[in-house]
């Protein structure tokens, strides 16, 4: 499954370690939520970055005490029709100020990319190579966004108000976020 970051297909530097597998001494690892929560002190002592795979039916508030030690949170789309992880992503980014990598995993298809970006995801395990290759083009398709989210894009509402009142744009709260 190709990984897209910063608009390009890149190599995944995280190695998935399942619940019953030993954690390697070096290198970035991506571990399931239960394992991470059980052994988080142990992971804190590793030199290399840690990432967690967080299920979509578990409140992300549980992760808040650990966000500083996480380089990556991978949120899950069991099917692309299951949109719970969009809310989780916005909460992590906009409420809990998570600044690490936020990755969409599972049933991730081209037509979700823009919604994912707008919700705060910045890496994408695309299910299809063709979709991954089309990423840059797909997320550039739209130029107008009605609602403000934490992605910093100016909403139509702010654009209209700043057209009417130049200078207002910079003070808009959503730009700061």
């Amino acid at each position: 499954m190709p990984l897209v970051k910063s608009g390009h297909i890149v190599e995944d530097r995280f190695v998935r370690v399942l619940d019953d597998e030993p954690v390697p001494d070096t290198g970035s690892v991506l571990v399931p939520a239960t394992r991470f929560l059980a052994d988080h002190a142990e992971f804190a002592h590793r030199e290399a970055p840690t990432g967690v795979i967080w299920p979509n039916d578990r409140p992300v508030a549980e992760l808040v005490p650990h966000l500083d030690q996480l380089a990556l949170v991978a949120l899950v789309f069991p099917t692309f029709k299951d949109g719970r992880a969009y809310s989780q992503a916005r909460l992590l980014r906009e409420r809990h100020a998570f600044r690490g990598e936020l990755r969409a995993t599972g049933d991730v298809l081209r037509d979700q990319f823009l919604y994912l970006v707008r919700s705060g995801f910045d890496s994408f395990e695309a299910k299809k190579t063709a979709d991954a290759e089309a990423f840059a083009q797909v997320v550039a398709r739209y130029s107008v966004f009605y609602q403000p989210t934490g992605d910093g894009r100016l909403s139509a509402r702010r654009r209209r108000l700043s057209d009417a009142e130049p200078g207002r744009e910079k003070s808009a709260r959503e730009v700061a976020q």
Partner: peptide, 13 residues
């Protein structure tokens, strides 16, 4: 209508 058109969080309820 505008706020909920292509809302990124609420398109897969």
């Amino acid at each position: 209508r505008q706020h909920l058109t292509m809302h990124p969080e609420f398109s897969f309820l």
